[in-house]
Structure formats: C-alpha cells, structure tokens
Design a protein around this nucleic acid. Structure first.
Lengths: 226, 226
DNA sequence: ATTAAAAGTGAGTAATCACTCGCTAATCAA
DNA sequence: TTGATTAGCGAGTGATTACTCACTTTTAAT
C-alpha cells in the first residue's frame, strides 16, 4: 500500500535504526544466529523461544531483553536481506544502467543482473528461505518483499526496456510483458538451481545456465532459420 | 526420493483410500472447509484445532474422531490438489500429445497447457496456497509436489521437446534449458496474475497474456528484423 | 572507588496447545 | 425392536507457549 518512493525511504530509514552486527553483544548475535537456523528449518511459528534460547546458549529472558516480542526477532532477521535485495538496484545499477545505458548490450545487462541475483541468493540462502516462507502470512513482510524485488525495480526496468525498444535492440512488445519475461527467467533460474536441482542440471555451470537463459530470453526457443 | 513411476502409483493408490466428499458427514465437510480457510489465512502451525472446531461449528473432539492428528487434516486438504495437478498430465495430455503430437503446433500445445494451469490455480487458489506454504516444512509434501509438477512432467515434456527439435520446429538447444524456459514462463504467468497483480496487468485479458508469453517464449524479446 | 545503566538470569505466569475419554445421539442391518 | 457400530460431544489432560519480573552480574563513565 506504500507508494514506492515512500517504501525505499522507509526501508533505508529502518536500516539506520537497525543495530550493526558489530555493536551487538555476543549473546545477541547468538540469538539471531539460532533464530535463523531454527526459522529456516522449521518455520517461525514452529520454533519456540525456549528452543531459540537453548540453541543460542542463553536464558530465555535474555531474548526479551533485546527483542520485545518473538515477531521482533523475525523482523530483525528479515530486514537486512530486504535491504540487500534493494540495494544493488538503488545504488549501483541505477547509476550504471542509466548513465551508460547505451554502452552495454541488453543481453549483457541481463546477464550481469542474473549473475548478481544468483550470488545474492547463494550468500543468503537461509534468510531468503525465511523471507519467502513468512511473506505468506505477514502482510508487512510480503509488501516489503514485493516492493523490493518488484515495484522498486519495475519502473527502472521499464525505462530501460523502452529505451532499448526505441534503439531497436528489443522488439516493440508491451513493456509489462517484457518485464515479466525477464523476471520469470530469473526466478526460474534460481528456482531450478536451488529447489529443483536434478542430475542433469549440474552438467552445466552457473554461467552456462545464465548464458542459455539469456539466449532463450532474447531469441526464443522457436526455430526461424528456415 | 521416490522413483517417478512409484510416486504416481502411490498417489493414485492414496486417492483410492481418500474418502469421497459425498460420503462424508456434514460435520466432516465443515471441518475440511474450515481447515482450508484457516490454513490459507494463517498457516498450518498458527491455526489451532480449537479454532478449526469453532469455525466448523463442531466440538473439538469431533475433529479427532475423523482425523487422528492435526497433520492428518493437512494431508487430507492437500492430497486432492496434488492429484488434480498430476491428473491432466497423466491422463489427458499424455494421450493427446503423444498420439497426435504432429497435429498440433508446439505453440498451440503450450498455449493450451498455460490456459489449463491458470484455470487450475484459479479453481484451487486456497489449496495451492496451503500446498506451497507447507511444502517448505514437510518433506513428504515437498517431494510429492516436486514429483507432481516437475519430475512427473519432465520426462514427458522432454520427449515432446526432442521430437519438435527433430522436426525443426524448435531450435536445437539443450532440452533441459527449453524445459526450464517453458516452466519459468508458466510460473511467471501465474505468479504475476495472482501475487504481483498490478494495475497495468489487468489491461490485458488472460488469453492475451498467454499469447504474449507464448510469443516471447518462441521468438524471444530481441529484435532480429534488421 | 562509586555508581548508574545495561546485560543476563531463571523461576514463575496465565493462556493455549493437541489430544483423550467417558459419555450420549444417531444410524442401520438383522 | 434389538444390538452394534459410528458420529458427536465437551470437560479434562499434561505439556508447552510467549512473555514477565525480581534479581544478580557486567560494563563503563566519572
């Protein structure tokens, strides 16, 4: 329900308030680490505060010294990942793409984007798992997730797409359909890698998979050589 | 971990044992209906048996007369959807696709598949939501889901893809990459429609969205008219 | 060294959890 | 009508839940 600019501002503001890991107590870091482990394994609701305390090697009261409720722990776990999702778009890519947008081929931009997102997922596997799980139930998390990986990106992507269509690099399709195709391929790439990881998938390296995906995204699977 | 044929057999066998809705008591149907509602809204773990009883207008003891545990309710809710997922592939499509596979253009087959899957999701929205949610935590459900929408389909799809490559209708890409592209587009289609449903998405009808998606899948988004 | 604030503790709280059991009501074949 | 099986009930079970609070220990500035 937030307007996209409001959200990004709000997210960045919330991060300001977030404690840096370095200025946490040893015990508090243990609580977070234990929560990540348990939430990822059994889910938020199925993990009890007594379990978290035990896993963290801490008295149960200590948890509530730092987090005023169990849900507060969840938000503390999940918020940094949302920031990581949004950050590359907000900071790096916005500048690069819009200031040198004609330097790079569209395929190269998408290739770099896919590589970046796969690395992000690999580096934050458990957190992202928790994020997706709980997005089902908690409205704030779902809205933040959608705003981060979708709304916040869409406007920027659409401008790029329209620019590339004008230049003649892309077909003049509805922008929204092109955006969906790019995002779908990305999701499929990550999903197959992480969830549906079968024998034959591993016969290609990540970069080969990305190259294949980008090739198909740009050229399709149909044969037009005739 | 099940071998694909074993799974399908097992699933169909389990369905045999499943009570038909018609031979359920009024109260039992209410229990299932209430469970679907609550599980979809707040998740399995966050829904208590006392809530279910209240929502169903039933004594709590009645629940355990029909289901020996809370998890049993979940399985009773989820199993029929898994069957619906698998059934069209097992029964209808296998025959149609393999016996008249050269009659239909690949684009037409995919179009019909997408239409079918969207309808399936629309007709079973809550159940599928529950299915996806709980697939995170319950190994049996996740394995059954993967086997149903993935493993069970993959072999069949691969044969079709390879046949269409030989005929020259599809580019000679790695089969697995083509399969992923088809599945990714389908997931994206449903995901955008159900979750990321924004203003401009509604400016196209479902069938227009499908047509666009299939067009992009077959031809890509790159411009090769030059 | 003093002292105030912050971190840490663990027994204790009421509420809720999934589930049981002894009971009555309804169903139905013989 | 009888007898037996199934459906339905709801108070009661011990275990567990998120969270509190009075208390001790640690930290750190003066």
């Amino acid at each position: 329900m937030n307007k996209p600019p409001t959200f990004v501002e709000g997210l960045l503001q919330y991060v300001e308030e977030l404690k840096d890991e370095s200025e946490m107590t040893e015990k508090q870091r243990n609580i977070l680490r234990a929560s990540v482990k348990l939430f990822a394994e059994k889910g938020f609701h199925a993990s009890s505060t007594s379990e978290i305390a035990k896993e963290a090697g801490v008295a149960e009261g200590t948890i509530f010294r730092h987090y005023k409720s169990k849900k507060d722990i969840l938000l503390a776990v999940v918020a940094p990942v949302l920031v990581k999702f949004a950050a590359p778009f907000i900071l790096k890519d916005v500048r690069e793409i819009f200031k040198e947008q004609n330097n790079k081929a569209f395929s190269q931009i998408v290739t770099e984007l896919y590589r970046n997102r796969i690395d992000l997922v690999l580096a934050n596997e458990k957190h992202i798992r928790i994020l997706l799980q709980e997005a089902f139930f908690h409205d704030e998390i779902r809205e933040a997730l959608i705003a981060t990986v979708f709304t916040g990106v869409k406007e920027m992507a659409n401008k790029l797409i329209e620019a590339k269509v004008e230049v003649g690099e892309l077909r003049p399709l509805p922008t929204q359909a092109v955006f969906r195709a790019i995002l779908s391929s990305m999701i499929g790439l990550v999903l197959f890698r992480q969830v549906l990881d079968t024998d034959e998938f591993t016969q290609f390296s990540d970069d080969e998979q990305i190259a294949l995906t980008v090739d198909i995204l740009l050229n399709g699977i149909g044969n037009h050589s005739i």
